[in-house]
Design a protein around this nucleic acid. Structure first.
Lengths: 361, 361
DNA sequence: TGTTAGCACTCGGAAGCTAAGAGTGCTAAA
DNA sequence: TTTAGCACTCTTAGCTTCCGAGTGCTAACA
């Protein structure tokens, strides 16, 4: 049977109270907080039904109720009110983003900072590059008399560099030629023939060979980086703010898990694009993350680069606020140029439903 | 009066036991751990004298003694045995460093990782660039039809890049000219005349003007970066391992403080170069750092770049091990090329004495 | 039939108490 | 000068008690 309207209202009130105070919610205190007066006894009855359905739990018999994970799921799917984001706020996010990017030149880190500041939660930021033919140009810059070279690759909207230290020197003029050759090969899409075609002229020990090889390896590496995602986690210390984390051991496990970038990447990579994704505690399938939720979304950086920005916070985080802020962020950043009419529907067309369908608790 | 030899031995034993177990040390348990049998009563007498001198403290009357900060100071200054570092270990550090640098291309982060792995403590890593005439070369790379440029600066052993987004396009050929002009100006050391001399030909609104200005600003910024230090803190989560940090509030304060890079930079910038510096708890003059010590040293990256690498751990950290590892690290990295005879004196000529002279507790 | 008041019951947490144990300081003897 | 012995102190763990918040049930009420 479906939940009654009143049950939904009660559940929503419980969840929001718990989000607010982190204290188990009792029937009496809840009763007074309602506009239309319902007695605590009625609430108790409803509560016990909600408990039977696995939506509430009691830490112990006389401590009030606490929402279960399934309840949070229901909450974000059906109960939660979406916040509107004012145009002014979008503008503000945009400006903040531009400010920080001016000093950082790294959209991933900037995004993490901005979101972390906006929400007061720990944020995770991932930059995903689609692989394939991305590198447009390559420059070689001599550093110390031909023993080291800076290799600079330019992609769509992005620059990467790497230092190559050689064991045999290469004349800068030689390197310039080489650079031209490589760029030509890139333009004509026949990079793979370059190395073999040059090899018979020069020894495999020569600095030149090493330089070409280094450059080509770096290009390959950058291009094949279809899932070479960069990961940045900002402000982990904020996780310590949460009351539920009195258990320092579990905290430690959580921080440990999060400090491994590949874990973070994996978690957010299974999200639906262009949606606000919510993963609540156990849905993440990772013991150390059992007590936190992850809310994240993607934003377009350019045609081949996708940013993922998210929040990690205890399961009782303020989902509504988190979703609103992330949606606003994605809007503000993706639409950096055509920020206009599209604003009006912020939050309305976002699809929060996902995670495991139906709370099977 | 000076401490007697026996007192010193007892103090040393107490400190080392406390470093080991984090438990207050009692007279009885200490008595049995000595080779030459001293009775617990004797030790008690000595202990109470050490306490009068401010070297020991009791958490409460029946809990054994705990070293005071002054005792740690004395310990690192006079009592501690310096570990020798085997040649093989240096070799190992060097290899590890090379491995990590291969994948990271960032000496600062690599150093932090290596040290943190070696010691199992949280590590801090700072890269300090001396300012003044550093930029050797500059390249401009067009990205999308002249609207964006990648500016690449090459220094002694280092490459930095930045994206410039213009509001008016600049022809790539024009940019090439510009780049030549800038490089010429750099070579002749008259960069400051460049902008004024070009200004009257072009409008201040033009893309070209913005591009030159952007480039020159970036060069200035990079060059004036005499104290633009990059800071990296690795593995903060390890700080949570410590028994003394049951107090989550103080932990939080500590992490907060450390997450501000400028704080970290300030802490390590006041160190004597080429020495192992030790700052014990209160010597750091920062309330949230009261219960941790900082051990750090410098290593040369190149003529104008100085790396600082350090460890942050509870005051009862293993100073001897920390010093040895850091000394080894600095040796291994600084001497990357001429690793040989100089190895033998590892640890012997390092000067650990510093911090506030004399423990005035 | 749904809602509410009332009441007995449960259980966790705080407060208070006790006993055990570790460690000290002092004294007196070796 | 060192040591053995002993009285004393103080923390900690374990136990008990008590309070109160919150529940579940029943019976009355709308």
């Amino acid at each position: 049977m479906e939940l009654s309207e009143r049950q939904r209202r009660i559940l929503k009130a419980i969840i929001e109270s718990y989000i607010d105070t982190a204290e188990p919610v009792g029937s009496k205190s809840l009763a007074v907080s309602f506009d239309s007066p319902i007695s605590s006894a009625t609430i108790r009855n409803e509560m016990s039904e909600l408990e039977e359905r696995g939506l509430l739990e009691k830490p112990h018999v006389s401590a009030g109720r606490v929402p279960s994970y399934a309840a949070y799921r229901l909450y974000v799917n059906e109960l939660m009110e979406r916040h509107r984001t004012a145009y002014s706020e979008l503008e503000q996010i945009r400006r903040r983003m531009q400010d920080i990017m001016r000093e950082m030149d790294d959209i991933m880190v900037s995004a993490a900072r901005v979101v972390s500041e906006m929400t007061n939660y720990t944020s995770v930021s991932v930059l995903n590059r689609r692989g394939g033919g991305r590198v447009k140009k390559c420059e070689l810059i001599a550093m110390d008399e031909g023993w080291s070279y800076a290799v600079v690759l330019v992609g769509e909207r992005e620059v990467r560099h790497k230092l190559l230290h050689l064991t045999a020197p290469v004349e800068p003029s030689m390197a310039a030629m080489l650079s031209t050759a490589v760029n030509l090969a890139i333009a004509e899409g026949r990079l793979e023939y370059l190395l073999p075609s040059m090899l018979h002229g020069i020894g495999a020990q020569s600095g030149m060979y090493m330089l070409i090889k280094g450059v080509i390896d770096f290009i390959r590496q950058t291009e094949n980086a279809s899932d070479v995602a960069e990961v940045y986690v900002s402000d982990t210390a904020r996780l310590l703010d949460n009351r539920e984390y009195q258990d320092i051991q579990r905290m430690r496990e959580l921080l440990d898990y999060m400090s491994d970038r590949s874990n973070v990447r994996d978690m957010v990579s299974r999200g639906a694009p262009e949606r606000i994704n919510i993963r609540i505690g156990p849905e993440l399938d990772e013991p150390s993350m059992r007590d936190v939720s992850l809310v994240f979304t993607t934003y377009a950086v350019d045609r081949d680069t996708k940013g993922i920005i998210g929040i990690v916070a205890p399961t009782r985080m303020d989902y509504a606020a988190a979703c609103a802020k992330l949606a606003a962020f994605a809007k503000a950043v993706s639409g950096m140029n055509e920020l206009g009419e599209k604003i009006k529907d912020t939050g309305e067309d976002d699809e929060y439903r996902n995670g495991k369908p139906g709370g099977e608790a």
